[in-house]
Structure formats: C-alpha cells, structure tokens
Design a protein around this nucleic acid. Structure first.
Lengths: 300, 300
DNA sequence: AGCGCATGATGCCCTTTTGGCATCAATTCT
DNA sequence: AGAATTGATGCCAAAAGGGCATCATGCGCT
C-alpha cells in the first residue's frame, strides 16, 4: 500500500466527475498527471476502479466501494486536523478539577459554570478530595487544578484566592447557645467539638488549633467525621458543636443553627492551585480565567 | 493540508516509540528523514505534536489527540483496501434476485442456501415478481438474476433450467373429482377455472392455453387472483379448480386435493436468467454456480 | 466514408519531495 | 572532563509528481 491521501483525493474527484479532464480542472492539475495518479492507485490496489472506453468512464463495483470509503477517510482526516488544532488551542480538552467541601459549597460551582460558558469545548471533571489528597494528585498529574484550603506554599505552583470566609459555629437548635445568634469563641471551651478526621482535615485544623489556643482552650475533637455532611449530621443529632465557615449555610440540614463568632476576624481562604509549567492549553485558559476573575470575586 | 498517509504512519511510529531513532529503525528509514517528516507534519498542521528536549520527547495533548485519530485513519484505510479487493474478487457484494411463486415453492430456496454457504460475503436480496416484471427489471439492471417461468428467448442473456415440473390440477376436497387421485385434462372442460391475472401470468398461460386446446376445450378463467396463494384461496372456498405445477404441494392450505394429469407429459420449466455481459464478480460467481449445479439438479 | 472533435494514454523533461550520509548541538552518564 | 546518546541540520542523490506536447481511439456530423 504505497498510495497516499493525494491519490485518494484525486480518485474522489474522478469518481464524482466521471471525467478525467473535468476532475483535473477541479484539482488544478493537468489531465495526464491525474490519469497517471489513478493508474498508479489501481496498480497499487491491484483493483480496477474504472471501466474506461476512450469516450467515457464508469466506476466498477469495487471502485464504488472504494469511493464510499475514501469519502469517509478524507472526512475523518479533516475532522482529525480540526480537532487536533482545537486541542492545541485549548478550545477542547479536559480538566481534572479537585475540590473540597468548603470550596464546593461556596463560589466554586458558579465559577465553574462561568468558565464552562466561556469554553464549552472543555470538559470539566470534578473530583472531591481533601486538600492534602489534592496536592498529591496535582504532583502526580492526576489533577490539573485543585480548589483547596489555604494557605499552601508549593514551589512550582501558581495559585490565587477564590474565596475568603469568616469562621462560624454550628450548633443543634436545642443547644443553650442557639438562641444567642452570636458568641465568643472562648464560650466553646467546655463544649464537645465535632469535626473532620485530623489527618485529612489538617489544613482546616491548622486554623482552628491556634485560634482556640488564643481563645484560651485546646481544640479537642470529641467526634470525627469524614466530610461536612457527616460533621453536620453528628451535630444535628446532638453529638456536639462544630466550627466551619460561612458557606456552610448553603449546606445546612434541618435542626441546625449557625452562630457568628464575635471575636474571630481571621478568615479561611479557599485557593485555586495549579502547576506553573502547565503545558496544556486548557489549563492555561483556566488559569487565566481564575487570575482575571478573582478581581471581581465578592467576599463571602 | 499537504501531509499524506506516509506522514501519518511515520507519526504513529514516533508517537508509539517516543524515540526518533527507534521509530526510524522500525520504519526502515534514516532518523534525519523521520525528523524532517515530523517537522513537516507539525508545520503543516500548525500544531506542535511533540515536546522535544535533546535527550527525549513527550507527546503533547494535541499530539495525543492526533495520534488516536491517526490510528483510526490508518485502520480504516487498511480495511477499505481489504474491502475493495474483496468486492473486486466478488467475495463480498450484493445480488438482486427475482423469483416467481413457482420458483420459490420449488428448489430455489435450497439452491440459494447452497450458494450462500459457498459465498457468505455475498448478500442475496430476493424480490418477488412475475416473469414479465422480472425480465423488465433485468433489462433495467434492477435485478441481477431472475428465476422465471420458461421458455424465454432474450438476446444478450444466459439462462439455465433449474427445475422442471409436471402440471397438476388442484381441487377443493368436496369436489366430485377429488377422490379420483388422477384425471384426464379433458375432464376439466366444464369446470370453472381459477387462475392468475392474464397479463401478469402470461408465461404460465402460454403453456395452459395450447394444452387445453389439445384436450379439446378453450381455457377460460372464471376467477382471477394475483399469486399462487390467492389462487389456492379461491379454490379452497369452492370458486373452482386450478392448474398449477407439482411444487404447489409445498404451499398447500387445508381443504385442497392435488390430482395428477394422466394425459399431460409436458412440463413447466423454471429458468434462471441473467445478462451475459455481467461485469459484477458476484454475478459471475452466481452464474458459475447455476451452470455447474444444474448438472446435479434432481428433476421434481 | 471521411473529417473533426473529444477523451484518455504516453513520452519527455523539469520541479518538488523524500531519503541517506555526515555532522552538529545539547544533554546525560561515567 | 570525556564518552555516549539524542534529535536537528546541511548537502546531495533518488524518486515521485506534474506540465506540455502528442498519440490513439471512438463518436458524431456532413
């Protein structure tokens, strides 16, 4: 099989015109060149594609079969080129996106939707993971972008803040503090605290621990869960109280009350983070989008 | 788009080996030629397909997309060539086959099955038509082969007998002649005859008319139907009797009796007929099959 | 029948493409 | 530092592709 795409294109022209000179005109080459190209193709295939009388040609059944296949081949090559260029330009592609509970209950969904509208060809694939897991997966190239609990310092990565939220306390409705509306952190020193497992939630706890210490008590977690829904579930059934961020109001279940913390001004930052050396054009688009959009990001 | 199948094949080798020299070895060309071919491809696509460091190369996301498409293209071209050759050799193809009621209730189905077993790649497409319609469709090229009621004389066609059957009389069970088992044709002179419409069944009637005349009466059709099932239906409900051939025993419905004709030795021939100039390889196979198989064809 | 015309094929020659060889530049391994 | 390996480049030869002129054949017209 020594023929190429050129032979296929030439053959299509002849099969459609059933006339060498007209086909040659269409292809902008001289008729003899076309005659020879088709003859070469027939020799190469060892199949006669046209029946020639000196006055006219007709296509053989084998030629017809070949013709239909040629159309498909040329078509798929053209689509392939188009697709390849789009991937190169980042118009189509896939992004593996990691997110934490905190990120997903805040501004992330609307951010992703905005991006999706801008780049409908890019397939966004979200993966729920805690911060530490996301950082590992970014290193391994499994994730392209992570939405994690800051602060994070990683050489070779770029990042930007997409959300900054006050901490809040969540209690069950019948808790004595519930009617208060606000409270001071030190008032929780005697409470049972429900929170995430310490190895997985370490980024979150790295805020809570010094915060509680400043308020005069040591954070001690009485009940562990593995995600926000689990924590809230335990709180709702009276196992204790918890400390989360404002966006938890978007994920509340009945029976819970959110209380502002009067004496805590520190906020929890949710960061987008991605490799600085992103070769992938889709990644660059996403990075540009995040860097630009953060300017208008409303604080929650 | 100036690249050809060669570039695609070269690209596949490089993408699989991720190593120019090894890929060049595999392709049996020198490494510089391959380097240039890939560079040409990249220029042509205006897309970088590989990231090169002097020590190694990696494929870009666009390159990966292109690679997957290239595999499909090469595959489909190979299949296309294979298919085209098979059509050329007649191993695959389609045959439009006409048949009459008489043909289909006789040996035709088993003949077709034999042929299908010999050439599983050839798609047999049967079409029910009376003899005259089949002959028209053969002229128009709509049918490749007809199974018709003989005799037929057509210049430019070849034919062979596939079946020769005695005429029989079919009566309803309660008919006075039914218990007789056999009868002489002249005994039907007073009977109501049920048969096919005269314009469509003219080839069949061209046997019946002189036959009846020899027996001393004129064929007069009291009730017309448009196919064997219709004729038998009318006979069964007592509208008259009919004259068909032995193979009708394969298509009987309850309430009918078949009677041999003692004094009629003439037989009705079912012929296969096809254009002598059949270009199509499948047609040639079928013609060869019929010409050969007729030797062993048992008379019915 | 003879002529002109249209069609596809062929011969010759030039241009472009492709490939091989020697070599270079950059990086890695020892 | 030096050897080795890898992809890129320069240069030349071979092959493929294409244009032009021309040929052979069949068709239609007079």
């Amino acid at each position: 099989m020594r023929f190429g795409l050129r032979h296929i294109r030439y053959f299509i022209a002849v099969a459609e015109e059933l006339h060498f000179r007209r086909a040659a005109d269409r292809l902008c080459i001289a008729q003899p060149a076309l005659s020879r190209a088709i003859r070469f193709l027939e020799n190469d295939l060892e199949v006669q594609l046209f029946d020639r009388s000196t006055r006219s040609i007709t296509i053989t059944p084998a030629g017809q079969t070949f013709f239909e296949g040629c159309l498909k081949v040329v078509n798929s090559v053209e689509h392939l080129v188009e697709n390849t260029r789009q991937v190169d330009e980042g118009q189509i592609g896939a992004l593996q996106i990691g997110y934490t509970d905190t990120a997903i209950s805040g501004v992330l969904p609307s951010r992703l939707k905005e991006f999706q509208d801008l780049h409908p060809g890019i397939n966004l694939k979200p993966h729920h993971d805690v911060t530490t897991t996301q950082l590992d997966k970014l290193d391994q190239g499994i994730l392209d972008v992570g939405f994690v609990t800051g602060p994070v310092t990683r050489p070779g990565y770029e990042q930007c803040t997409i959300q900054s939220e006050r901490f809040v306390c969540v209690v069950y409705d019948s808790h004595p503090l519930a009617p208060r509306g606000t409270l001071r952190l030190e008032e929780l020193s005697g409470e049972s605290i429900v929170h995430g497992a310490s190895n997985e939630w370490q980024h979150f706890h790295s805020h809570l621990i010094p915060m509680c210490r400043r308020a005069g008590f040591e954070l001690r977690i009485a009940q562990e869960a593995y995600n926000t829904a689990g924590i809230l579930g335990l709180v709702a059934c009276g196992m204790g109280v918890t400390l989360l961020t404002g966006s938890v109001r978007n994920a509340l279940i009945p029976g819970l009350t959110v209380l502002e913390l009067e004496d805590v001004d520190e906020e929890l930052q949710t960061m987008a983070i991605w490799r600085a050396d992103a070769a992938n054009a889709s990644q660059s688009f996403f990075a540009d989008f995040l860097m630009h959009a953060r300017l208008e990001a409303p604080a929650l």
